[in-house]
Amino acid sequence: MPTVTVTGLPSPIRIEAHEGERLVLALERGGTGILHRCGGAARCTTCRVKFEAGEPERMTVAERDKLQEKDLLGTARLSCQILCDHDMTLTPLQTESGTGLEAGKAPAEQIEPDPVWV
Protein backbone atom coordinates (compact mmCIF):
# COMPACT_ATOMS: atom_id res chain seq x y z
CA MET A 1 0.00 0.00 0.00
CA PRO A 2 1.27 3.47 -0.84
CA THR A 3 2.13 5.76 2.08
CA VAL A 4 1.10 9.41 1.93
CA THR A 5 3.11 11.58 4.32
CA VAL A 6 1.37 14.87 5.04
CA THR A 7 3.36 17.84 6.30
CA GLY A 8 2.43 21.45 6.94
CA LEU A 9 -0.10 20.53 9.64
CA PRO A 10 0.37 20.95 13.39
CA SER A 11 1.94 17.48 13.30
CA PRO A 12 2.84 15.28 10.31
CA ILE A 13 0.41 12.51 9.36
CA ARG A 14 1.19 9.20 7.63
CA ILE A 15 -1.71 7.68 5.72
CA GLU A 16 -1.72 4.16 4.34
CA ALA A 17 -3.56 4.75 1.08
CA HIS A 18 -5.42 2.06 -0.79
CA GLU A 19 -3.85 1.22 -4.14
CA GLY A 20 -5.59 3.36 -6.79
CA GLU A 21 -7.49 5.46 -4.21
CA ARG A 22 -8.05 9.10 -5.09
CA LEU A 23 -5.60 11.24 -3.14
CA VAL A 24 -8.35 13.61 -1.96
CA LEU A 25 -10.18 10.64 -0.39
CA ALA A 26 -7.03 9.32 1.31
CA LEU A 27 -6.32 12.80 2.71
CA GLU A 28 -9.89 13.12 3.95
CA ARG A 29 -9.84 9.63 5.49
CA GLY A 30 -6.52 10.48 7.17
CA GLY A 31 -8.03 13.45 8.99
CA THR A 32 -6.22 16.29 7.23
CA GLY A 33 -9.34 18.44 6.74
CA ILE A 34 -8.52 18.89 3.04
CA LEU A 35 -11.02 21.10 1.23
CA HIS A 36 -12.90 19.93 -1.86
CA ARG A 37 -15.61 22.52 -2.39
CA CYS A 38 -16.63 21.24 -5.85
CA GLY A 39 -16.87 17.61 -4.70
CA GLY A 40 -13.67 16.51 -6.43
CA ALA A 41 -14.50 17.39 -10.03
CA ALA A 42 -11.51 19.64 -10.90
CA ARG A 43 -13.58 22.81 -10.89
CA CYS A 44 -12.48 24.81 -7.84
CA THR A 45 -8.80 24.14 -6.89
CA THR A 46 -9.52 24.05 -3.12
CA CYS A 47 -8.07 20.51 -2.86
CA ARG A 48 -4.67 21.61 -4.10
CA VAL A 49 -1.47 20.24 -2.61
CA LYS A 50 2.24 20.94 -2.92
CA PHE A 51 4.54 17.94 -3.31
CA GLU A 52 7.83 17.55 -1.49
CA ALA A 53 8.46 14.06 -2.90
CA GLY A 54 6.71 11.58 -5.13
CA GLU A 55 4.81 14.01 -7.35
CA PRO A 56 3.05 11.99 -10.07
CA GLU A 57 4.40 12.55 -13.56
CA ARG A 58 1.06 12.37 -15.32
CA MET A 59 -2.03 14.52 -14.83
CA THR A 60 -5.51 14.67 -16.23
CA VAL A 61 -6.49 17.16 -18.91
CA ALA A 62 -9.07 18.57 -16.47
CA GLU A 63 -6.35 19.20 -13.86
CA ARG A 64 -3.97 20.76 -16.37
CA ASP A 65 -6.66 23.03 -17.78
CA LYS A 66 -7.87 24.19 -14.33
CA LEU A 67 -4.33 24.82 -13.07
CA GLN A 68 -3.53 26.81 -16.23
CA GLU A 69 -6.74 28.83 -15.85
CA LYS A 70 -5.85 29.72 -12.23
CA ASP A 71 -2.14 30.32 -13.01
CA LEU A 72 -1.16 27.45 -10.69
CA LEU A 73 0.45 25.07 -13.20
CA GLY A 74 3.86 24.07 -11.87
CA THR A 75 3.17 25.28 -8.32
CA ALA A 76 0.33 23.01 -7.12
CA ARG A 77 -1.59 19.86 -7.98
CA LEU A 78 -5.24 18.92 -7.50
CA SER A 79 -5.60 16.00 -5.10
CA CYS A 80 -8.97 15.12 -6.63
CA GLN A 81 -7.21 14.23 -9.90
CA ILE A 82 -4.42 12.04 -8.47
CA LEU A 83 -4.45 8.31 -7.80
CA CYS A 84 -2.42 6.80 -4.97
CA ASP A 85 -0.12 4.30 -6.64
CA HIS A 86 3.22 5.15 -4.97
CA ASP A 87 4.58 6.86 -1.85
CA MET A 88 4.15 10.65 -1.68
CA THR A 89 5.05 13.49 0.66
CA LEU A 90 2.94 16.63 0.39
CA THR A 91 1.37 19.62 2.08
CA PRO A 92 -2.35 20.44 1.68
CA LEU A 93 -2.61 24.11 0.73
CA GLN A 94 -6.18 24.64 1.93
CA THR A 95 -7.82 22.91 4.87
CA GLU A 96 -11.10 23.38 6.71
CA SER A 97 -9.34 24.58 9.87
CA GLY A 98 -7.02 26.91 7.98
CA THR A 99 -9.76 28.62 5.99
CA GLY A 100 -12.87 28.28 8.13
CA LEU A 101 -14.67 26.76 5.14
CA GLU A 102 -16.38 23.40 5.00
CA ALA A 103 -15.66 20.73 2.43
CA GLY A 104 -18.26 20.28 -0.30
CA LYS A 105 -20.09 17.09 -1.21
CA ALA A 106 -18.12 13.88 -0.89
CA PRO A 107 -15.95 13.13 -3.92
CA ALA A 108 -16.82 10.00 -5.90
CA GLU A 109 -14.61 6.92 -5.65
CA GLN A 110 -13.42 7.39 -9.24
CA ILE A 111 -11.85 10.49 -10.79
CA GLU A 112 -14.35 12.95 -12.23
CA PRO A 113 -14.65 13.94 -14.98
CA ASP A 114 -13.53 10.70 -16.63
CA PRO A 115 -9.77 11.06 -16.79
CA VAL A 116 -7.88 11.73 -20.00
CA TRP A 117 -4.19 11.59 -19.11
CA VAL A 118 -1.44 13.85 -20.45
Rank of each mutant, 00 (worst) to 15 (best):
Q68S: 11
E102W: 04
G33F: 09
P92H: 05
L78Q: 08
T75M: 08
Q81S: 05
L72V: 04
D71L: 08
R48C: 10
S97E: 14
C84V: 07
V24P: 02
T95N: 03
A53F: 04
P92F: 10
V24E: 00
R58S: 14
T46L: 12
L101H: 14
L93I: 03
T91P: 02
C47V: 07
G39P: 13
L78Y: 02
A41P: 01
D85A: 07
C38V: 03
L27P: 08
G100C: 06
E55R: 14
L27K: 02
I82T: 06
A41C: 13
I82R: 04
E96K: 08
H18E: 15
L25G: 06
T99M: 07
T95R: 00
C47L: 12
Q81G: 00
T45P: 02
G100D: 08
R58M: 13
A53E: 15
A53K: 15
E63R: 01
C47T: 11
H18P: 03
T32E: 07
R29T: 09
K70I: 00
R22I: 00
R22D: 00
G98C: 06
T32K: 09
G74R: 01
V49M: 03
M59Y: 05
E55Y: 06
T32L: 07
T60Q: 05
T91M: 07
R43P: 02
I82C: 00
P92N: 12
S79E: 14
L35G: 05
L83D: 01
A62T: 11
E63Y: 04
V61T: 13
A42I: 07
S97K: 13
G98E: 10
E57K: 15
A42N: 05
L25N: 15
E96S: 13
C44I: 08
G54V: 04
E52K: 02
H86F: 02
E63I: 11
L67W: 03
K50C: 02
R43S: 15
G100A: 06
G39W: 09
L23A: 04
E69F: 14
L72M: 15
I82Q: 02
V49Q: 00
T95H: 00
R64V: 03
G40V: 06
T89P: 00
P92K: 05
M88F: 02
R64I: 04
S79P: 03
L27A: 03
K70C: 11
G74N: 12
L25E: 12
R29C: 13
A42P: 05
T75S: 15
H18T: 15
L73W: 12
G40P: 12
E96I: 08
L101R: 12
M88Y: 01
L27G: 04
L90S: 06
R58Q: 14
H86Y: 08
E63D: 02
E96C: 10
D87K: 07
L23I: 00
A42D: 05
E102C: 08
D65H: 06
G74M: 10
E19V: 01
T45A: 15
E55C: 12
L101M: 15
G30K: 12
L93D: 05
E102K: 14
T46W: 09
A62Q: 06
V61A: 10
R37V: 15
L93V: 10
L72R: 10
L78V: 05
L67V: 07
E57G: 15
E21K: 00
Q68R: 15
I82F: 00
T45D: 07
T89S: 12
L67C: 00
Q81L: 01
A26L: 09
D85F: 00
C44L: 11
G30A: 13
